[in-house]
Design a protein around this nucleic acid. Structure first.
Length: 565
RNA sequence: GUGCCUGUGGCUCAGUAGGAUAGAGCAGCGGCCUUCUAAGCCGCGGGUCGGGGGUUCGAAUCCCUUCAGGCACGCCA
């Protein structure tokens, strides 16, 4: 059920369907009487009547009954008064019926969505700059699944490029397998940093790197052996992080996978007369569209990022026949995506419109931006460890009797880190602050987990609502605090759809915070213990519904709900 | 220089297909644990929504202009 739509169906307006009405429904400011409002100002222009008059007329047509108990016209608004008891009954019984599946739907049935996210680079640090794409992509992945889409998570590995030549040289000169075995990607990274430092005074190194990269391209045995070794080391470490973040992928096809799939694309573009030579490079001129040209072939014959992305898009369309293909990539690449989407469109791919660049903001450090080459990065695993350590400290202090402290600390610490990447609009830049990530109070994941644990604890102490065979006494939740919460619960599916439509997980984060706040407020006012069975039953139904929302929502964000903390 | 993005209380942000008195969290101050988790709840102070024009019955939200910050603009990805 979609709560807003239910109400919209009870307000009949000529010329508008219930979905349009639902979109126009607004909450009422706190101090004013009523539960929902329909502003009539927009209609005034169409109907050529004053909003005040329209509201008055609408009052007459509203279907008063179980759900709406009163309608009032105030200053051009149609204010709706809900029957709290019946609304509660409707929402709570539906949640009880659906259980964990509450809020899910099948609007995505038979539609495939590809999500290109996280996309780590081989032999490069998994640093906090990668948290955004990983958390956002991971959340979208799970949310689309809830809405019935077939989802393909793709980790488009950065496993191609001249940096691998540098890495091989650095490894051969200054490192060894023993060292890498011990130090992992960090050791590889150190060698890489050293390469850049020494390269400044030794141009011979640059040449060596170039020739080693050539060997990689030519699939030279030694080069491939080393490359695959680097890849193996990286994936082993990265998978540990993905496990901690509750992230998974269906495909790991990276850039090198497409190295032999670019030629047909180039051939097609040439056949369609879209490319031309400019300063020795092959480009697609986009000046008609107010963009700089898209470079596809370097003057030395080498391909570029855009060339590979073209091949990748074609491959994905052919393989998955996607309804949409999302690229969760930082906004620095805005122009790149606009360009290659446009080139696909010019090529005649009608599905170019289904490619979406889900851009997010930059992460920088207090003292400037991170640089892989210079080696000043904040490793994500360090941040996770820090957060878990702090969570454990707090548990020791507040819940020394918990049995599985480490496990819970992991869920809380990691949850806090994930949430920090999902709680703001994705487009906002972030200056990384460990203190902020490690704050476990207020609008944070631990707050949500805490509220969830509270729900679980109430159920544990008082039993499940279905244990009580009497009828629930809904009058015991007939108050505005409870109604606030129940209205939120009733709108969960709407929120998931909104996230899916806008590619914006923060909508869900904010919603969960609101829901938890509403619940905690009610928690302080309404007790369960010691009440009659029928009151207990009604109140437990609210608790259970809240628990279901928090459990489902947290998981959708990739955060583990806990039962105790 | 051109294009795109961002600008809301000390800090971090919600709110933008125009709508009722601009909402939170953190930080500060003051209350609430002899009954279901105080990682919580309640209260107080604090904002010319970057500035200036305009459209409108009504603008944080739309248009113009201006300032500040970020990003991108040909052989990296």
């Amino acid at each position: 059920m979609n709560f807003k739509k239910e109400i919209a169906k009870l307000i009949e307006i000529d010329g508008l369907n219930y979905e349009q009405i639902a979109d126009m429904l607004e909450p009422i400011p706190d101090q004013l009487p009523g539960d929902m409002a329909f502003p009539c100002f927009r209609l005034a222009k169409i109907m050529r009547k004053s909003p005040v008059l329209i509201a008055q007329q609408l009052v007459e047509s509203v279907k008063i009954g179980d759900i709406i108990e009163k309608a009032q016209a105030v200053n051009g608004y149609l204010n709706i008064f809900l029957n709290k008891i019946n609304v509660a009954k409707r929402v709570l019984s539906e949640v009880a019926q659906c259980g964990e599946a509450y809020g899910e739907s099948d609007i995505g049935k038979n539609k495939t969505i590809c999500i290109d996210y996280s996309s780590v680079n081989i032999a490069k640090p998994f640093h906090i700059g990668h948290l955004g794409t990983t958390a956002i992509g991971g959340a979208l992945y799970k949310i689309y699944k809830k809405l019935g889409y077939n989802v393909v998570g793709i980790n488009h590995l950065g496993d191609y490029g001249t940096q691998f030549g540098k890495l091989i040289v650095a490894f051969k000169l200054w490192s060894s397998k023993e060292e890498i075995e011990k130090g992992g990607v960090r050791a590889l990274q150190q060698a890489y940093v050293r390469f850049h430092k020494e390269e400044e005074s030794n141009t011979e190194l640059t040449e060596m790197a170039r020739s080693w990269f050539l060997k990689v391209e030519e699939k030279d045995a030694e080069a491939m052996e080393l490359f695959n070794y680097f890849k193996e080391i990286t994936l082993k470490e990265v998978n540990k992080i993905y496990n901690r973040l509750n992230i998974s992928f269906d495909s790991w096809n990276g850039e090198s996978f497409y190295s032999d799939k670019m030629q047909p694309v180039l051939d097609d573009l040439r056949a369609k007369n879209l490319t031309k030579i400019s300063d020795g490079a092959e480009i697609v001129d986009l000046s008609d569209y107010g963009m700089p040209p898209c470079l596809l072939v370097k003057s030395n014959g080498g391909t570029l990022y855009a060339t590979r992305d073209m091949a990748t898009a074609h491959y994905r369309k052919k393989t998955y026949d996607f309804y949409k293909c999302l690229y969760v990539v930082a906004y620095q690449q805005n122009l790149h995506f606009k360009q290659f989407f446009k080139v696909l469109e010019l090529e005649g791919c009608s599905w170019a419109k289904d490619l979406v660049h889900v851009a997010y903001g930059m992460v920088s450090l207090v003292d400037g931006s991170m640089s892989t080459r210079k080696g000043n990065v904040v490793w994500l695993s360090d941040v996770l460890d820090n957060a878990v350590e702090k969570a454990l400290d707090i548990i020791m202090q507040k819940s020394p009797d918990l049995s599985n402290k480490e496990e819970i600390a992991e869920s809380i610490g990691v949850g806090a880190v994930i949430f920090s990447a999902l709680c703001n609009s994705r487009i906002k830049d972030i200056t990384f602050s460990l203190d902020r990530v490690l704050s476990f109070e207020g609008e944070t994941a631990p707050y949500l987990q805490y509220t969830h644990a509270r729900c679980m604890s109430l159920i544990e102490k008082n039993g499940h609502s279905s244990d009580y065979k009497c009828d629930p006494d809904y009058t015991s939740i007939d108050n505005s605090v409870a109604l606030e919460l129940i209205k939120l619960i009733g709108v969960y599916n709407h929120v998931l759809c909104d996230v899916a439509e806008k590619y914006e997980p923060s909508i869900l984060s904010n919603y969960l915070i609101d829901t938890a706040k509403a619940f905690n407020k009610l928690y302080m006012e309404c007790r369960i213990y010691g009440e009659s069975d029928s009151v207990k039953k009604a109140r437990l139904m609210v608790v259970e519904a809240t628990q279901i929302i928090l459990n489902s929502g947290l998981k959708a964000l990739g955060i583990k709900p806990v039962s105790k903390m």
